[in-house]
Nucleic acid binder design. Sequence first.
DNA 1: ACTCAGGTATCCT
DNA 2: AGGATACCTGAG
Length: 266
Amino acid sequence: MFNISSVHFDIQKIADSGQCFRICKTENNRWQVIASNKFTYVDENETGGYIISCPDEDNGFWTEYFDLNCDYQKFEDSVAADDNFLSAAIEYGKGIRILKQDPWEMLITFIISQRRSIPSIKTCVNRICSRWGRMLGPGIYSFPEPEALSEASLEELCECGLGYRAEYVYLAAKAAAEHRLDMETLKAYNDEQLYSALLSLRGVGAKVANCVMLFGFYRIASFPVDVWIDRVQKEYYNGRFPVEKYNGFAGIIQQYIFFYARRKNK
DNA sequence: ACTCAGGTATCCT
DNA sequence: AGGATACCTGAG
């Protein structure tokens, strides 16, 4: 167990920032978080901070997962003073962080994400976890390892509602189980090598590859352009966001923009 | 019933 | 390179 009291940590915003599909709100204003083979609960404390109610031996794991050793103030301070849109987005999204999630889970999850709504993605991921993942607690399942997921037939994956993405997941799981695709190998690649390796997978295009890099490999220079970011680019940045102004960490900036654009539009 | 959703593959020009 | 189109489902 440990406490977090920082203006740069807001679990509601993190859960709603589209990077993670395994955080859900339970009764009593609790947040359940599942990652790798662990789960924990996040509660608000009296002072507006949070309590992470994990066993002490897992403190390090969750500190890493929530990227708590990273100073987000320096990202916020980097915003160009004359950029009114981004200044507003940063102010609005204060408390957002990039989670350090599992690369394999991110790959499959973002393959599934294409052309779907977020609730629908969550439904699919939950079905996959409860069917091929390990039970971690009552009704709580881990995301399946490649070996476990590769047991799934194409038909069984379709039953999870994956639609035409089932084939993509099937191929990726087979490749990973047979070690033609290996996350540890990918970790050693530089950004450029990693990007082209991901692009070579069926069902993985530019947007999904960038999301996997950003959320699964913590390559914070990656700048995924989805429909929301594209709308913002067209409306406020003459068609293209100036990523070069945020060299090396444009992905962090992307999260604030995405969150702001999506919330404002609802 | 009906549209559209965190895109990608494929087939054009 | 860049544009057009089809695509499985489920959520609103």
